[in-house]
Simulated assay, not measured.
Amino acid sequence: MDGIEHQPVKGPRKKKGLLIVNTGNGKGKTTAALGMVLRAWGRGMAVEVYQFIKPPTANFGEHRAAKRLGIPVYPLGDGFTWKSKDLERTRALALEQWERARARLMDPELSLLVLDEFTYLLHYGWLATADAVEALVERRPMLHVVVTGRYAPAALVEAADLVTEMTLVKHPYREQGIKAQPGVEF
Rank of each mutant, 00 (worst) to 15 (best):
M1H: 06
I4F: 09
I4H: 14
H6K: 15
Q7V: 11
G11F: 01
R13C: 05
K14Y: 03
K16H: 15
G17W: 02
L18M: 13
L18I: 01
V21G: 12
T23N: 12
T23A: 08
G24Q: 07
K27H: 09
G28C: 05
G28Q: 11
K29H: 05
A32P: 01
L38W: 04
L38Q: 07
R43A: 13
R43N: 15
G44S: 14
M45T: 06
M45L: 15
V47P: 06
V47G: 05
Y50N: 14
Q51E: 13
F52N: 01
I53N: 09
K54Q: 14
P55W: 03
A58H: 13
N59G: 10
R64D: 00
A65D: 00
K67D: 00
L69K: 11
G70W: 03
P72K: 09
L76D: 00
G77W: 05
G77I: 02
D78W: 01
D78T: 03
T81L: 12
T81S: 09
K83D: 08
K85Y: 05
K85T: 14
D86V: 07
E88G: 03
T90P: 00
R91N: 02
A92N: 04
A92V: 00
A92K: 11
L93I: 01
L93V: 00
L95R: 10
E96A: 14
Q97P: 05
W98L: 04
R102P: 00
A103Y: 02
A103T: 02
L105W: 08
M106R: 10
M106T: 10
P108C: 05
P108Y: 06
P108E: 06
S111Q: 08
S111I: 00
L113D: 01
V114A: 06
V114W: 10
L115V: 02
D116E: 13
F118H: 08
F118T: 03
T119W: 03
T119R: 08
Y120K: 06
L121K: 05
H123K: 12
L127K: 08
T129D: 01
T129L: 08
E134N: 12
E134W: 09
L136V: 00
L136H: 02
L136P: 02
R140Q: 07
L143S: 03
T148F: 08
G149K: 05
Y151C: 09
Y151I: 02
A154G: 09
A154P: 04
A155M: 12
A155R: 14
L156V: 13
E158F: 12
D161A: 10
L162A: 08
V163F: 13
T164D: 06
E165C: 02
E165S: 07
T167P: 01
T167W: 07
L168H: 09
K170Y: 01
H171K: 13
P172W: 14
Y173R: 11
R174S: 06
E175N: 12
Q176I: 06
K179I: 06
Q181A: 15
Q181D: 07
P182S: 13
V184T: 12
V184K: 14
E185I: 04
